[in-house]
Amino acid sequence: MKDTISQNQPVIEAKGLNLVFQTADGPVQALKDVNLTVAKGDFVSFIGPSGCGKTTFLRAIAALEHPTSGTLTVNGMSPDEARRKRAYGYVFQAAGLYPWRTIRGNIKLPLEIMGFSKADQEERVQRVLELVELKGFGKKFPWQLSGGMQQRASIARALAFDADILLMDEPFGALDEIVRDRLNEEVLKLWARTGKTIGFVTHSIPEAVYLSTKIVVMSPRPGRITDVIDSPLPKERPLDIRDSREFIEIAHRVREGLRAGHHED
């Protein structure tokens, strides 16, 4: 299966994508003529003002919303098919752990639904708990963990079934900056270790620049892509890379893109 997908085939490909919500106040164009190609192993950030369709785009990739027109493929399949092939793990803004399950139970949830064997489940839980550095917290209930730890657990849950695409919608939006920095570093390590393709929604320019190989700048009304920046930063990124000239230049370009999108209103 893995071999048939050539290294160059895009993991996510959107062509002329439009998505219109029918609401009581008339149609809302959430996405307009979106074109984007994401290669295997990319770390793509979506950044833009509130209401520009970042969440909608991520949800469309995950087959939680359906485009009105245009084409969208995931691993060369329709998003619905890709879901059946367990192509992605989704991390929501809130950790959304089930309060009646322990951390281990929460991570097992997708495994139970997908029918992994009991032994396999245990082994995977151990592995992803280590990956997000929550070893030893498996027996705790969610309320016994801090917000940052809960979000790490929800990432572990998304990793447990080995999807090769990880979609994260402002996963650290509700956390303070210090915790956020640490989790960003961890996400990068995780990405380097697993080679997954990651789609990441954020409101923070430094976060987007620090994490991404590709930054997608969006603007609202109607939601569209205004700039796609391929980051020249190396894969190895210590936190102090944020003081480098290159980093500041990319951040500047993102800011310009955001401002330009705003002026068009």
Binding site: R83, F92, M114
Partner: peptide, 12 residues
């Protein structure tokens, strides 16, 4: 909705 969507992403 989020809890329901989560299950949907697992193809439940």
């Amino acid at each position: 909705q989020m809890q329901l969507d989560l299950l949907k992403t697992y193809g439940a």
